[in-house]
Amino acid sequence: MDRIKNIAVVAHDNCKEELLDFVACNREAILAHNLIATGTTGRLVESLLAETGPSEGGEPKRVRRLMSGPLGGDQQLGAMISEGKVDVLFFFWDPMEPQPHDVDVKALLRLAVLYNIPTASNRSSAEFLISSAFFDHEFSIKPNRFFEYADRKLD
């Protein structure tokens, strides 16, 4: 994992305000990295960063926006994780509200665990993750043992 990371940000509707506050409070740390987000979350984060001023380069921070989660954005993000294009996942998900795309949410979280991606699911875990000494430095992710499954012998 390079020093400049590809950070995915996702939030369910009831958690978007909390994610935006987290991004605002950690703006400088986040601006140093590349951002990826599902639909509405991406639009809101990009708008927030534009309101608070340009990045060091003088241009507004661009967010790579995928589809909305229920319209396939969670699956797009999962594919990016499996392709090694996501280094960190901030996914503020709502444990109290059923989602029409619960299976996609579960698949996304499963892939984050499978590929050993640092993941924060709420404000406290996000603050711990972003304040880690590894956040702004190179870091080597050890592959999980799960990949032995692909090479297993079949009788």
Rank of each mutant, 00 (worst) to 15 (best):
A150V: 15
E127L: 05
F91N: 06
A37N: 03
A120V: 05
M96T: 09
H101T: 02
K153M: 15
R110W: 11
R3E: 15
F22D: 04
G84I: 03
N34M: 10
E18K: 04
L19E: 03
I4L: 11
L20D: 00
P70G: 02
S68R: 13
A37M: 05
P100S: 09
I141E: 12
T40V: 07
E148C: 08
V45K: 01
L35Y: 03
K5D: 10
G58Y: 03
K153Y: 15
E59N: 11
M1D: 14
D155K: 15
E51V: 06
S68A: 15
A29W: 05
I141S: 15
A79H: 12
A126I: 01
E127D: 14
I117Q: 09
R65P: 08
Y115L: 01
F146I: 14
N6W: 06
K5G: 13
R123W: 09
S132F: 07
N26S: 05
D94R: 02
I7G: 02
G42I: 01
T119W: 06
H101R: 06
E56A: 11
E17F: 00
G42K: 00
G53C: 04
T40E: 08
P60K: 10
Y115K: 04
R43S: 12
A120G: 09
A8S: 07
A126F: 03
N34A: 09
E127A: 09
F135Y: 09
V9F: 00
G39P: 07
C15V: 02
M80T: 10
V86I: 11
R152Q: 15
K85T: 08
A29G: 07
R123E: 13
E138S: 13
L108K: 00
R152D: 12
E138Q: 14
Q76H: 05
P54Y: 05
V9N: 01
A150G: 15
S47R: 13
L89K: 05
M80V: 11
S121T: 14
I141L: 14
D102M: 09
A120Y: 05
T41G: 02
P98C: 06
Q76A: 02
A32H: 08
P118A: 07
N6G: 04
G72A: 03
G58N: 07
K16C: 02
S131W: 06
N144K: 15
F139C: 14
H33R: 08
L20N: 04
P60N: 12
L108D: 01
A133L: 13
S131P: 08
L111F: 09
F135A: 05
P95H: 00
K85L: 12
T52D: 14
R27Q: 13
R145E: 15
Q76R: 06
R62M: 12
M96C: 10
P54F: 06
A133G: 11
N6E: 07
E51T: 13
G73I: 02
F139G: 12
L31G: 10
